[in-house]
Each structure stands twice: as structure tokens, then as C-alpha cells.
């Protein structure tokens, strides 16, 4: 079976693509002989869902926005892939949500810092004008 996202060739019984982590079972119905963790946990993924790990955004916020809150996002990204390796799609989705949450927290903090800096600059400029008078 070829993955519809990255084109990798996977065994027909694969739950998720071994290369990119895309859910393969929702695209083609699982064979009734194969009990899958998807059915075991009762989680039904929409067709073609990818369990994203948001690793790129986690590293972006850690290294380019200087925010330590990106570290938990990276740890959750590792957890997403770890659960996918173990075939636990439901667990991977929970980790994926946490990774996304920490990325959003980092983004919010980053925007907050920038706004605070802009305000400080404005105050600095204004007080500078005041002192020059």
C-alpha cells in the first residue's frame, strides 16, 4: 500500500505510514481478521488524517523565539512518534494535541513579548522626548 501523503510503500497491514505517520487504515478499511488498536480504543479517525507531531514548530519556537516553552512541545512531538511506532494511534493523537497546545502557548508568549517590547520602546521614546525638552 502506498501512502497518500509521502508515497512510501508500506505493508498492507500497516496502521500508519512508517515514513510520515499518516493514518493508513482510515483510507482503506481494515481487514476484519486484523484487530487494530484503532478499533480496540474505539477511536475513529476521519479519512486520511495525519497525526502531526508539530516538531518543526516546536523547534522554531525554542530556537528562533528563544522560548523554553518549546521544550515540552518537542518532548510531546517525540511522544507522538513513539506512540505511532507502538501502533497506539489514540495515544499519539493525545500527545499531538499536547504538542500543539505547547506550540500555541509558545506562540502566545512570543507575541506577548514582542508587544511588551514595542510598548517599552514607545515609553522609552516618549520619555526621551520629554527629557529633551
Amino acid at each position: 500500500m502506498f501512502c497518500s501523503q509521502c508515497g512510501a510503500n508500506n505493508p498492507d497491514t500497516a496502521l500508519v505510514c512508517a515514513q510520515c505517520g499518516r493514518n493508513l487504515q482510515a483510507v482503506t478499511p481494515a481487514s476484519p481478521l486484523q484487530p487494530t488498536p484503532l478499533q480496540a480504543t474505539g477511536v475513529v479517525l476521519p479519512a486520511g488524517t495525519t497525526v502531526q507531531n508539530y516538531l518543526v514548530f516546536a523547534i522554531l519556537t525554542t530556537v528562533f523565539c528563544c522560548l523554553p516553552t518549546g521544550i515540552p512541545a518537542i518532548i510531546y512531538a517525540a511522544q507522538v512518534n513513539g506512540k505511532l511506532q507502538a501502533g497506539d494511534v489514540a495515544g499519539a493523537q493525545i500527545a499531538s494535541k499536547n504538542a500543539k497546545m505547547w506550540c500555541l502557548i509558545s506562540l502566545g508568549l512570543g507575541i506577548g513579548c514582542m508587544a511588551l517590547y514595542a510598548i517599552l520602546i514607545m515609553v522609552g521614546v516618549l520619555s526621551g522626548i520629554h527629557q529633551n525638552r
Partner: peptide, 30 residues
């Protein structure tokens, strides 16, 4: 890859990173 995936529903080919590699990367950054 993310932008292309959002636009046309298909990203660029990416290797699956095993969890241990991501943890090692995290450790290296710290």
C-alpha cells in the same frame, strides 16, 4: 512541506523520525 500539505493536501517526502532521535535532538538543544 507543511505549506504544500495545506495547499494541495500532499507534503514533501519526509522520513519518519523515531522517538529516540527526537529526544536526542531535544537533549542536544538543552
Amino acid at each position: 512541506s507543511f505549506v504544500l500539505f495545506e495547499i494541495r493536501g500532499q507534503g514533501l517526502p519526509q522520513p519518519f523520525l523515531r522517538a529516540g532521535w527526537i529526544r536526542a535532538l531535544c537533549g542536544a538543544i538543552i
